[in-house]
Structure formats: C-alpha cells, structure tokens
Design a protein around this nucleic acid. Structure first.
Lengths: 352, 352
DNA sequence: CTGTTAGCGCATTCAA
DNA sequence: TTGAATGCGCTAACAG
C-alpha cells in the first residue's frame, strides 16, 4: 500500500495524520504501574486500590490518554456502537426517531451509527452487512424487508424493529398504537357528522399502514357506518403521488373529509385542497396521522395523531440496551407507544 | 473464549449472543490458502492471482465471512467511520446536512457516527473525545466552540467545519454564501419599496449570523438606505423567543417587512404575524434565510433563501474524504455553497 | 504471487 | 491488590 518511499515523504511534510496517541503502556510508565493495572484502574470496578486508581487517572489525564475503542472492542468482544437503520433522514418522522434514539444512547455512553437505506431492500442489506462488520451489539431498524432483521439476529446481533413489523419477526418491537390512533381520529370525524371519509394510504403490507387502516375500519364499524371501499385511496410513497391520488379521489367521489395515513401524504393532500381553493374545514376536513411541526404552522392547523416519535426513539434505545445487558427475559418484547389525537382547526362539522 | 462446552449450550438454548463469526483463518482453511492471502484477496488490489482471488471470495461467501472492522482498524490504523457532530437533528437544517453527508459517505463505503451536541460546549467536547476514542480519521462538525475542532486536529483528526466558522480555525470549511444570500434577499425587499425592514437574528458571533447581517447591511448601503439599528432585533435561539422579539419589534417600531435569519426564528415570526391577523404580504412582508419544507406549505408560501443544505452536506463529505485520502494540498480549503433566492407569496410591495 | 512472522492496543486470565 | 503472559482478528513486513 504505502511503501517506505511514501511514508518517508509523509514524515518530511507537514502531515498530521500519524500522530502517535498515548497507549496504556504510556500511562503505565507515567504512573509507575503495569499496563494491566492501568486497564483495571480506568475501566473495571473494584480491582484497584483507590490510591493507585487516582494516580493512574491523573497520569492518563496528564498525557491525554484516550482509550482505543477498536482495541477494546476487539479484545473484549463488546462494542458501544449501535446501528440505526432508517429510510429517510429528511422525513421528520425518521429524524425525530433518530434524535430520540441518539439522546438515549448518548446518555448511556453508546454511539449511533446512522445509515439511510432509502427504503430500498438492497441498500438495507448492504447496511446490515456493514453493521455486522462493525460488530455492533445491536441495531434499531425501521425494516424494509424481514430479511434484514433476520440476518442480523442470525449473527447474534440484537434487533429492535421500530415503527413497523413483519408477521414472523422474532425481534423486539416498538410500535405506535396505529389502530387505536387511527380509530380515534376517524371517530373524531364521524362525531362531526362525516360519513364519507377518504383514507389516503400508501401501503398496507406493514403493520403501520395495516394498523391505521384497521383503525379506520373499526371506527366505521363501531358507529354502524358502512365503508365505501372506493374511498380508501391507495397511493405511492411520495407527496406528489399523494396529490394525484387526492385529485382522483375528489374527482370521482364525494367526500367531506380526508385522512392521510402519514405526514408525507398529508403534504400532497393539502396541496391539492389548496389548489382547488377548498375552504378547510368548511368545505372539507383534513386530518393526518403522524404529527410533524409544519402541521401546526399551516392555516388552519391540521388535526393530527401525534405518535410521540422522539419518545418512540428513546424507547427503542432503552429496550435495545436492556436486551444487550441481558436484563430481559428471552421472549420478544412489544412496546406500544400510545398515540394521541390533537384536534386543531382543519377538521369541522360535515357540510350540509 | 467460548470453549466448546459453551458453544454447545448456545446451540441447545435459544441464546444468540456468542455466535462465533468466521475469521480469515476459517476462510483460509476453506480456500486452502494462508490467512494473509485471504486478506489480500479480499481487500488489497493486485497482490493475488485472479484464480486464488476468486476461490477465496467464493469461500468467504460460502461460510458467511464478514470482515471485523475493529481488528482491521486496529492493525491498519485506518477507520472508515466518520464523526458527524451537529446541534439538533430535529431541526431540518441539520437533518438535511446529515442526510447529504451520509449519502456521500455511504457511496464511498464510509460510515456516519452521528452525535447531537445540543449546541452545548460541554457535550461537544464530550463527543469529540468519544470520536477520538473511536479513532475516526475525520469529523464534520457544526462547531459550537473553536476548542472542539482544535482538539480534534491536535490529535491528527481531519476536520471539516460546516455552516459556520470561527476566526482562527485552521480546518477546512464549507459555508453558505451568507452575505450574498442575505444581500439578495434584502435587495428583493428594497426593490419592492420597503425601507424599514426588521432583521430578526439570534447570534452574530459565528460567521453565519455575522454574514447574514453583513448582507443585510450591504444591501442597504448599496441602495443608499440608512439602517435604523433598532430594527435589528436580536433574539435567542428558539421559536418562542423569536416570537416575543417579533412582538416587541412590531410594538415599538414601524416595519413593513421582516427578515428572519434562519428557519427556526421564522416560525416565531410567522406565529406572531398570524396572531395579529396581519395580512401577508399586503400589510407586512416576511422572508427567511434557510428554506425548509414547511415554508412552501404555509399560505402564503414564504420567500426564502435556499442554502442547498443537502448539497452542503455532500460537499463536506467529499472534502473530508479527499483530505483523508491525501488528495488535497496542505492549506485549508474553503468551499462556498451558493445561496439562491426563492421568491414566493410572502413578500410584496411595501404598503402605502 | 504467496506463506510466515509479528504486533496493532487492550482486557483478561493466572499466579504471585 | 497487582504484574506477567496471552491472544482478540487482522494486515503489513519480509522472505521465499
């Protein structure tokens, strides 16, 4: 790679890369003890006399010693890096999730290795392999396929699936109570007299979409309202698609309210309603699952379901760390994060 | 470590932690070559015959070998983990920046270790130490203090400062062209006839705020407009504070337009204007530096300066990687990312 | 082009 | 309680 000609040149020039960092050896010399004593004094608890420990710590501080995680990880077969695998950091849902995770990990002196998989199975597997290579003890993932958590678990990595689930997964789970949240939201509209409510939804393969749709249905059943299946408007993942779908929904059917299954789709729906100059909520009500900041900035502010995304992230991290520390019984744990209805100005009585 | 007794138990019980992962030794045995040949065949280029290389790769694939980054990093004194140190992942500016960085790093097969420092100097230093422990070859940071990049560099870590600069920093830099952007935005308002423009700003210690304020001033000077210093409204970092400051600004002074120095402050300003039921832009114009998605969702959509945040992130990563690979001359490099004015509905002719 | 040897920095035996 | 010895998994020297 770099034969000595190159190394020599590097040494001659003002290159700062090969700064020799102090090792336990250096600290040992400085403190007048053995390397193993340094190791114990610095990390393990109870195997060094207070005096020695203080002396070692002082010496370490003095010469600017910083543990080498690579060496520590290699030797002790543990790592404090946690993989976090999400679909799109630019979506505030994932950003909030990651923020919650990071907060909790940092408090426990763990690090977050964040990877975007763009919702692509291939990139997701790629990322999983990278995390295997890093020998992370655990991964938090919003899975795209069941294969990814599976492969990780097969290799002894603890996995927490966040936000969504696949039928046969065996990993720990942290989910929003999608069904309850969507049901509450739908009932709020029904209580306002709406009987023809459009449901804008992108997928129902995952528990996320499936749960929200189930809640939508349940609210209808509970209120003895028949569902016009045509009002369930399946769309794609992006806001533009949602806008087209909303357009079609409005053209082809009479609805007095629309529920968007997530924050991205809501953008498209809102754009279409505004474009048509429909008065919200006088002419049509709009509500969304997954509250994000812009929803309270628009006029009227949107009625939403807040799924406490940051807290969801914290839960993921807490659960994973507990699992890593062996504090949990073997069987998988499911954490349901409550969803909370927030009524704002975008929903009102049904017209006529 | 895990003698066969334990391994046997592991196989019997549903414990997945002590999974013995294959090593180069195992691959070597499988392929009938030596460990070092495996290493060369798998990673280095040119030092293995095609036949052997193929055989080794097949063997590795077969037994599910995945390189141990810790061991590789320890031995070769290189790492593909990059530290990214930001203030608040929930702020879309930082999320976009991180997304751009991650995208570019991932393409180059590097990993992103993301740490939130909450804008707190102590947490920032804590994070720096963690990254030193991880032996990352480089860090991208939106610095809170000059000390953090300094310490990292002193330890041989390459640093790219993103978004802001401190006077004496010696690290590479990627900045928005704050002055030009703010000037253009201000001139846009002046061209619309505004002469009393409020400037809502949180800090001017960093190049960010300083540059934007300088652009604001420059636009006035260019147009022979005197600045009423009272219209420069200094506020704190959060939206609530910005709202209070906007309230005071409106109470105490007559302004026909307000410029917010960033996306967070804009929330506060907008909230106050709406609360007062001021018609935008008929009664007052509002514009903001740092375009984020909600600004095109509100009505009227906000006139903004887009600082291409994702691209800024990509630039940071590209610059850092080039530096790490030694492709750059020793002297620090400054990358200015152009800022682009986006005129939307929130700015209009000055009243009267 | 390939194998042998050695050691990165550390934590963990074990013996003292 | 401490020190000496060992090796985690890998890759860089060197020799062949």
């Amino acid at each position: 790679m770099s034969p000595r000609g190159q190394a020599a040149r590097a040494a001659a020039q003002p290159v700062q890369q090969p700064v020799r960092r102090p090792t336990v050896q250096d600290v040992a010399r400085e403190a007048g003890v053995s390397p193993s004593t340094v190791s114990r004094a610095l990390h393990t608890r109870g195997y060094a006399s207070p005096a020695v420990r203080a002396r070692v710590q002082a010496a370490a501080e003095r010469i600017g010693y910083v543990t080498d995680h690579n060496a520590r990880n290699l030797r002790s077969r543990t790592s404090t890096s946690i993989g976090v695998l999400i679909s799109d950091l630019r979506n505030p849902f994932y950003a909030d999730l990651a923020a919650g995770i990071e907060e909790e990990l940092r408090a426990a002196e763990y690090q977050m290795v964040l990877v975007n998989d763009n919702g692509d199975p291939a990139e997701e597997m790629q990322a999983a392999e990278t995390l295997l290579a890093m020998r992370v003890p655990g991964v938090i993932v919003t899975p795209v396929t069941a294969k990814c958590p599976q492969v990780l678990q097969d290799n002894g990595v603890h996995v927490v699936c966040a936000d969504r689930e696949f039928g046969r997964a065996t990993s720990d789970l942290v989910l929003s109570d999608n069904k309850a949240g969507a049901r509450e939201l739908t009932e709020h509209l029904i209580a306002l007299g709406h009987t023809r409510i459009g449901m804008l939804i992108d997928e129902t393969k995952w528990s996320t979409g499936a749960g929200r749709l189930a809640g939508f249905r349940a609210a209808h059943v509970d209120n003895a309202l028949e569902i016009d299946e045509d009002l369930i408007a399946y769309t794609s993942f992006d806001a533009d698609a949602a806008r087209q779908t909303t357009r079609r929904l409005l053209n082809d059917h009479e609805v007095t309210a629309i529920i968007s299954a997530n924050n991205v789709l809501a953008q498209g729906a809102l754009a279409e309603l505004k474009d048509r100059r429909l008065k919200i909520p006088r002419q049509i009500s709009l509500a969304a699952y997954d509250d994000v900041p812009w929803m309270s900035l628009v006029q009227p502010a949107l009625t939403t379901v807040d799924q406490s995304t940051v807290e969801m992230g914290r839960s993921c991290a807490r659960l994973l760390l507990a699992r890593i520390r062996g504090e949990l019984p073997p069987r998988r744990r499911l954490v349901k994060v409550p969803a909370r209805l927030i009524v704002r100005g975008s929903t009102g009585p049904a017209p006529r």
